[in-house]
């Protein structure tokens, strides 16, 4: 059973939440229009990419997912930029984000909740990004990113480790009716939740949280094999190469609706 507060549903930017924030954050509310716009953009990006693990509240789920609210490490803005772009530990890389996006995110996490770090100029973000490797182009899950053999291996791993909760049809319906429904792992329901994220986020989220009673108990190759199986059940095509258990490379594969 998922812990209360851990949401896998994509958060929806709600006007009420924004409005409430503006009321309780006089420092930002008093800023100039573009500052506010950057903060709002940052919140939107945060909710799409970060809140899955760090939570909308910024409280995270320590020790797996660190809290950002009240986190002194946010003092080092270059570190935030590097972590977002390249990933760090459990955190997946987000190489697709533009400089402005990363700047907005940095601004958001440093000013949201009870945080009150000074603003960071976009130039500083650009400078921090300088010298970080470009790791290649971007593809989608519909571009043949796994092999049939890998999906077959993944089915075996899935049946043993995941199927008891997520169901033999990967639709979140366990066979044992005493068990609660879980999120779907394939097809339209899965895509709706994960659209816009990368396979690196999925991979790291799975490694950090699944199986729920024993996270990390599969091998790294097994986790990507399970992803391959999920994609194959969802009708995504196979290709010549298997998915690698490598977050930087997985971060270049976007989860998207069927083109």
């Amino acid at each position: 059973m998922p812990k209360s507060g851990r949401k896998t549903r994509r958060p929806t930017p709600a006007a009420g939440v924004l409005g409430a924030w503006l009321l309780i954050a006089p420092a930002a509310a008093a800023g100039q229009a573009d500052t506010t716009a950057g903060f709002e953009r940052g919140q939107e990006l945060y909710e799409a990419h970060c809140a899955l693990c760090h939570q909308e509240s910024g409280q995270g789920d320590p020790p797996t997912f660190p809290a950002l609210n009240g986190n002194d490490r946010l003092e080092d803005s270059a570190r935030i930029v590097r972590n977002i772009y390249r990933g760090a530990g459990t955190m997946p890389p987000f190489p697709d984000l533009e400089v402005e996006d990363i700047a907005a995110l940095v601004q958001y996490v440093r000013g949201a909740w009870e945080n009150d770090f000074p603003e960071v100029a976009a130039e500083e973000v650009a400078a921090a990004l300088d010298g970080l490797d470009e790791t290649g182009g971007r593809v989608s899950v519909w571009d043949g990113v796994f092999t049939q053999a890998q999906a077959d291996r993944g089915q075996t791993a899935y049946t043993g480790a995941c199927g008891i909760c997520h169901g033999r049809r990967l639709n979140g319906a366990p066979d044992d009716p005493d068990m609660r429904s879980t999120p779907p792992l394939a097809r339209a329901g899965f895509l709706r939740e994960w659209d816009g994220r990368s396979l690196a986020t999925l991979y790291e989220y799975m490694r950090a949280t699944m199986p729920e009673d024993n996270p990390g108990s599969l091998t790294d190759p097994e986790y990507v094999d399970v992803i391959a199986y999920m994609l194959s059940v969802g009708g995504m095509p196979t290709g010549p190469d298997a998915l690698p258990p490598d977050p930087p490379r997985l971060s270049r594969i976007a989860i998207e609706q069927r083109p």
Partner: peptide
């Protein structure tokens, strides 16, 4: 047909 909670959408 076990549709899970998500199926009710």
């Amino acid at each position: 047909v076990n549709v899970g909670n998500a199926g009710f959408e």
